[in-house]
Structures are given as structure tokens and as C-alpha cells.
């Protein structure tokens, strides 16, 4: 589904991704864990062309997208939804308009169906009575959930989550994690989740990839990671155990 081959990305003299080789299968939920600044978000942004790698290749659905132009990336972005670290909602639009924005752009749907899909997406993230509000009128946690709804409403085949639960309360965090799991299982969506949360990763991931200093230092199923001897993985596991 998604494959990275020797992916390298630098900013100035600093190399963020140092030859990433990773293959993500269709329907898989992959958590990318690592400390801040290890290139997790950069990896996601390279996947959908928001950043360009210096070298290496990115393949999506047997198609090499590495050197795609903005125009060529349009169909790729249509099938890949991304939930950003920030809610990234458009301040000038209402919540309804924010969620309907992509639907109007990508599909020629009647307004009644757009409304239905918007309401459906909002109920998935446990939000009600916010349709007419502006992003500035709701809390940060609610904005993040709207951002999730905006992505989910397009029913993409691949979902990329950049720290989807940062800034959310524990109840919403659990519901977002369940949502990621349900979407993957019911709609066979492939999910890549960038996170610091080993606890969640152990619960819902099919595979966990640990990045350190721009390289993959460990990867495997949650059970395999529990047996890992890599110090960074042990640190993450210790923190997850503290939370239990």
C-alpha cells in the first residue's frame, strides 16, 4: 500500500530522515513512535507531497509518487486523508462549512447528502450542536475532533494522523483511538498514526515503528515490542506501564 525506500530528508545541514525503509500493508494500523524532532511528522508530510524528499522513493498503491507535481498529487491526496497536529480549521468558515469544504471540492453531491455526511462525521467524533459555530468559538479539543471529522467525511483509503490525540481529554482520546481502530476494521482503511502514546499504540496498533534520530530502531507487533531490548523502546514501555 505505502512503501518508503531509503527515504532521506534534510533541512539545511540537518538530516531528519536517514534512509527510511518501511512497507505498510493495506488495512494495517501502524503507529510511528519516537521522541520530538525525530522526523515522524516529516515522514507523513513526505507521503502526501507536502514536503519533498531529498532522495529515496515513496510508493503508494504501486505508484511511485516521489517526483509527482502538485497536480499529480491531487488524486493521491483524494485517497489519503491527513489529520494535522494543529486542528488547521479555516477560521473564516463555520464548522459545517469546514467539514463540507472537501466534499464540495471532490464530489458533486446534493446539499442534502453533504449535510447528512457532515452530521454523520460529527457524530463519529462525538460532537453535536456545533455546526453553525466558528472554530474560534469552540475549545481546542473540539477543534481537533472537527479536524478529524473533516478528514473522515471524505472516506479516504489511507488516513494519516499527526498526533491526533494531543491536547484531548482522556475520554476523547479513547474515542479517537476507537475511531481509528473502527475505520480500519470496518472500512479497511490503512492508518499511519504519529504519536508519543505507547499505551494507545499497544492497544490498537497492528504494528509499531519506533524512530530515533531519523532512523527506524525497532518495529514489530505490540507483543514483539514488549520484548524489545532497545533502550528507547524500553523507556516508552516504562512510561506506558506507569500510566496503567
Amino acid at each position: 500500500m505505502i512503501q518508503y525506500k531509503k527515504l532521506i530528508k534534510s533541512f539545511g545541514t540537518r538530516t531528519i530522515l536517514k534512509g527510511i525503509d518501511l512497507h505498510i500493508k493495506a488495512g494495517e494500523i501502524v503507529f510511528i513512535l519516537g521522541t520530538s524532532g525525530t522526523g515522524k511528522s516529516v515522514l507523513l508530510k513526505n507521503t502526501v507531497g507536502l514536503m519533498k524528499p531529498d532522495s529515496g522513493e515513496i510508493w503508494i498503491d504501486d505508484e511511485n509518487v516521489t517526483d509527482f507535481t502538485e497536480q499529480e498529487f491531487l488524486p493521491v491526496r483524494k485517497k489519503c486523508g491527513m489529520v494535522f497536529q494543529h486542528p488547521a480549521l479555516f477560521d473564516s468558515l463555520s464548522i459545517y462549512e469546514n467539514i463540507a469544504f472537501g466534499l464540495r471540492k471532490h464530489f458533486s453531491l446534493p446539499e442534502s447528502e453533504i449535510k447528512e455526511r457532515v452530521e454523520q462525521a460529527l457524530s463519529l467524533v462525538n460532537l453535536e450542536n456545533v455546526l453553525a459555530k466558528r472554530p474560534g468559538e469552540i475549545s481546542y479539543g473540539m477543534q481537533k475532533r472537527v479536524s478529524l471529522a473533516r478528514t473522515v467525511v471524505l472516506r479516504p483509503k489511507v488516513l494519516l494522523f499527526d498526533e491526533p490525540t494531543t491536547g484531548l481529554d482522556p475520554v476523547t482520546t479513547n474515542s479517537v483511538n476507537s475511531l481509528i481502530q473502527n475505520l480500519s476494521r470496518k472500512l479497511n482503511t490503512t492508518s499511519m498514526v504519529v504519536s508519543h502514546d505507547m499505551h494507545c499504540a499497544l492497544k490498537i496498533a497492528d504494528r509499531i515503528v519506533v524512530l530515533d534520530q531519523g532512523q527506524i530502531v525497532e518495529q514489530g507487533t505490540p507483543q514483539e515490542l514488549l520484548r524489545s531490548q532497545v533502550p528507547l523502546v524500553r523507556d516508552f514501555l516504562a512510561e506506558a506501564r506507569d500510566l496503567l
Binding site: 508530510k45 507536502l50 491531487l74 491526496r77 497536529q85 488547521a88 480549521l89 479555516f90 472537501g102 471540492k105
Partner: peptide, 14 residues
């Protein structure tokens, strides 16, 4: 800074 421009690109908007 708040990734709204990236969000626009992801929604297919120039």
C-alpha cells in the same frame, strides 16, 4: 504555522 495551508493542499485547493 497552524498547518491550514497544508490542509488546503490536502483538500485539493490551490
Amino acid at each position: 504555522v497552524t498547518e491550514q495551508i497544508d490542509a488546503l493542499k490536502m483538500l485539493g485547493i490551490n
